[in-house]
Every structure is written in structure tokens, then in C-alpha cells.
């Protein structure tokens, strides 16, 4: 990978309490690219993302964002550097309307004008959010809630977007729609680290992929390379 790297994990180990979940994970998200992190359920993909966002502190290793070590920073400081996060299970604020969910993020945006511009951009990417802006988000459909979770991660115009299983529990049509929007977001200059079990969708839109198993990165390469590696494709990606 020749491009300048935006996010770099250098032999990061992390977990909960004393229990190590991920061991010496190294990965690299170059600026402007979509990188995907694949693997079965429970192999440490979500833990990797939660370590990047600062929800859990790494036991060892370094996390570099734009060359700056971010391990040990508070979640809101990491977010403030330009990291948008769409968590597993969406985790939208169900007691707020769609608009208010986005307004929460305005707490880290300097001016009202920039927030309004970003809001307009999010509504252009997901017109449904504009239509539903004053609906209580708890009452929105699963697809709309996923769009809201992604929109909420984007309304600060981050440099890096972290997505945890955006396709989970959604109809194939909605998954396709979200995948297309992710490409559009990436073309607008946002780098993406995508965590997915839906390898087919992920590999279609990504530039580069890592495969995790049992808390470690076991393989990485361009999407074509991974698809040609039969053992990987069979065992870990479940597509043939």
C-alpha cells in the first residue's frame, strides 16, 4: 500500500478486564480508501473498533491517527480528531428524533453554519432522514435507523468512518442501497474502515481487506487476492 496511512494499528492487543480479546493486531487504513475487516462472529472485530474509538484502552501496541498516537485518549477526544463511528446494533438515541440524533454531534462542530452544511450533505446522502427528521428514532424502521447511525457518524464530516456491521438484519435491497451510499461517501473523501460478516457486500466495495480469526489478523490483501485464495474464501468468507 503506497498511499499515506490515515489510521494505523501497530501490534495492538486489547480486551475487557484482564481478558485479552485481540492479540497483536496490525492494520492500516490509507487515506481515501475503503478497508474492510472480515471474519466470523466473535473473533474480535468489534473489539478492534471499540479500541480505536477509545471505548476500551489497548493493553499494548500503538494506535496512530494521522501519525499521532491516540491510545489512551477519551472517546470524545478521538471523535474530535475526525473519527466518525457507527456502532454495532446501531445504538441510535431512541429517545431523540432523527434530527436531534444528528444535533448531538453538533457539540463537536465549531460553527452553526458548518453543521447546517454537513446536515444538508447527510440529508442528500440519505433523503429518508430528511423526510423523517422529526420522527422519534425509536419508531423508525431498521433500515432507517441504520441510515441514521451512519448519518450521525458523518454529520461531523469525519476523515475516517468506522462502520460496525451496517448490513446486520437488513433486507438485501437496503443493504445494496447502503453499499452504494458508502461508495458515494468514500468518493467525497471520507476513508472507511468497514467491519462486516457480509463478505460479499464488503468485498464488492472495498479496496483492501483483512481477515480476522480468534483475535488475530490471519490474512490480508486486495479483495481480488483474497477471493482467489481458495482456503480463505471457503473457510472465512463463506462465498464461492
Amino acid at each position: 500500500m503506497s498511499n499515506e496511512s490515515l489510521l494505523q494499528l501497530d501490534t495492538v492487543s486489547s480486551g475487557y478486564g484482564k481478558k485479552t480479546i485481540i492479540r497483536e493486531v496490525s492494520l492500516d487504513v490509507p487515506a481515501g480508501k475503503i478497508v474492510t475487516l472480515l471474519g466470523a462472529n466473535g473473533v474480535g472485530k468489534t473489539t478492534t473498533l471499540r479500541t480505536i474509538t477509545g471505548q476500551i484502552a489497548p493493553f499494548a501496541g500503538r494506535l496512530l491517527f494521522q501519525g499521532r498516537d491516540i491510545s489512551g485518549l477519551k472517546p470524545h477526544s478521538i471523535a474530535g480528531l475526525g473519527v466518525g463511528y457507527s456502532p454495532e446494533g446501531r445504538r441510535i438515541f431512541g429517545n431523540l428524533t432523527a434530527y436531534e440524533n444528528l444535533l448531538v454531534v453538533a457539540n463537536r462542530i465549531k460553527s452553526k453554519k458548518i453543521f447546517r452544511e454537513n446536515l444538508q450533505w447527510v440529508y442528500t446522502l440519505f433523503p429518508r432522514l430528511g423526510e423523517r427528521s422529526h420522527q422519534l428514532s425509536d419508531t423508525m424502521s431498521g433500515g432507517e435507523q441504520q441510515m441514521l447511525a451512519i448519518g450521525r457518524a458523518l454529520v461531523s464530516k469525519p476523515m475516517l468512518l468506522l462502520l460496525d456491521e451496517p448490513s446486520l438484519g437488513l433486507a438485501p435491497m437496503v443493504v445494496k442501497q447502503i453499499a452504494e451510499t458508502l461508495v458515494e461517501i468514500n468518493q467525497a473523501g471520507v476513508s472507511i474502515l468497514l467491519v462486516e460478516q457480509n463478505a460479499k457486500m464488503a468485498l464488492q466495495i472495498s479496496h483492501y481487506a483483512y481477515v480476522m480469526d480468534n483475535g488475530q489478523v490471519i490474512q490480508h490483501g486486495s479483495c481480488e487476492e483474497l477471493l482467489q485464495d481458495k482456503s480463505i474464501a471457503d473457510i472465512y468468507l463463506g462465498i464461492r
Binding site: P75, H76, A79, G80, F93, E100, N101, V104, A153
Partner: peptide, 20 residues
């Protein structure tokens, strides 16, 4: 809005850049 978001899910509010 940040106050209400924190009442609902303080952990995620932090990752959204809310200085909790």
C-alpha cells in the same frame, strides 16, 4: 440534546464527540 443522549446511552454519546 447531548444531555438527553447521555441519559439514553452515555458510552455512545462519548464516541459521538460529546464531552461527557
Amino acid at each position: 440534546a447531548a444531555m438527553r443522549a447521555m441519559s439514553y446511552d452515555p458510552e455512545i454519546a462519548g464516541t459521538m464527540g460529546v464531552p461527557t
